[in-house]
């Protein structure tokens, strides 16, 4: 009851668009932090003689965050349902290779390559989902296992970059429309579809129900296993889309594309930064988008200040833990 009252009060203050966003309450905190960070960034850039709001920097932020953003959307769905996917990093590497090898530099092969990538990633997600539901293996171990399997396949078949991406497909990674990068538009499309899925469809409600309490969901007639399989498939497909995007940026399939980016743990970090509970059932896509943007803006500030990459890791770790500590505090006092 108190929660409802609080929501209404905030909604009245901030208008109707934000009211919808604040349906997942913690998302507000991350956007507040993002706004503060942008102001800080603007200040630091100005003192440093740069322009934070230059088109170059804004497009850069979008391009750096798009791939992680897409993976994190998928990860959000799995985490909301009470699971976890550690296999996304190796899956991304695999899909860049599948894409680049099938395209083989010819524009005509692009549709086939996209179809193959989506099929491969959906298959991996299906396997993950079946291991978790049918074999009753904890998602942590199940997806760690599939990650190892994919890594074995990558190690055995590839020594380095393979295949090539035709120029027509590279538009996806590099083009922009005004101040908007095409890759960011792709990310936005994925995010909006996931948001619609969660807020407008039965599957969406069931994801929250399963994540909130699997047993209660099962007893109320939700086929929890199907929901788990569905979120794993969707998460892997998101990883596949991120793989396509990275292939188009790199120009070739790269066996280390996913692991170099640390997409497995980084995507989980972005999701929880966005206020989604790691145990499932609470949170949403809007928070995740904020979390990814937060990490990207932080990165662009580091780049401008020419901060050492090791120092970046330290700051990221501190930010992550501090943010979660603040959320935990808010939840207790709320």
């Amino acid at each position: 009851m108190t929660q409802q009252l609080k929501l209404r009060r905030v909604a009245a203050a901030e208008g109707s668009f934000l009211r919808r966003l604040s349906a997942d309450q913690p998302a507000r905190a991350v956007y507040l932090a993002l706004a503060l960070l942008i102001m800080l960034g603007w200040l630091l850039f100005t003192l440093d003689g740069g322009r934070f709001l230059s088109q170059e920097n804004i497009v850069g932020i979008q391009q750096r965050s798009a791939a992680l953003g897409i993976v994190a959307i998928g990860q959000t769905l799995v985490i909301l349902a009470g699971g976890l996917d550690l296999s996304v990093a190796y899956l991304i590497s695999l899909t860049t290779l599948v894409a680049a090898e099938i395209m083989a530099g010819a524009g005509a092969n692009v549709p086939a390559a996209i179809a193959a990538v989506l099929a491969v990633s959906a298959l991996v997600g299906l396997v993950n989902g079946l291991i978790v539901t049918r074999l009753q293996v904890h998602a942590f171990i199940a997806t760690l296992g599939t990650a190892l399997i994919i890594r074995g396949v990558l190690d055995a078949r590839y020594d380095g970059p393979a295949g090539s991406v035709p120029a027509s497909f590279r538009h996806l990674g590099y083009d922009r429309i005004g101040p908007l990068a095409v890759s960011a538009l792709l990310w936005a499309a994925v995010a909006v579809s996931a948001w619609l899925l969660l807020s407008r469809t039965r599957l969406g409600y069931r994801i929250y129900a399963v994540g909130g309490n699997t047993e209660v969901a099962r007893l109320s007639g939700v086929r929890t296993e199907r929901v788990m399989i569905a979120v794993h498939v969707l998460c892997s497909v998101c990883a596949g889309i991120a793989g396509l995007l990275l292939a188009s940026r790199l120009g070739a399939g790269t066996p280390t594309a996913g692991t170099d980016g640390g997409y497995d743990l980084e995507s989980i970090a972005a999701v929880v930064l966005g206020g989604t509970a790691l145990a499932g059932g609470r949170g949403g896509v809007a928070g995740t988008v904020g979390g990814v943007l937060l990490l990207a803006v932080l990165d662009s500030i580091f780049n401008q200040m020419e901060v050492n990459s090791f120092a970046k890791d330290v700051v990221r770790g501190v930010v992550l833990v501090a943010a979660l500590a603040i959320y935990a505090r808010r939840r207790r006092t709320a």
Binding site: L265, I268, A269, V272, L278, A279, D313, V314, R316, G317, V318, L320, V321, L324, A325, A328, R329, R332
Partner: peptide
Amino acid sequence: RVPSFITTLGMLL
């Protein structure tokens, strides 16, 4: 009250 997955992930970084 930070979930230990995140605490120790942060510590890792």
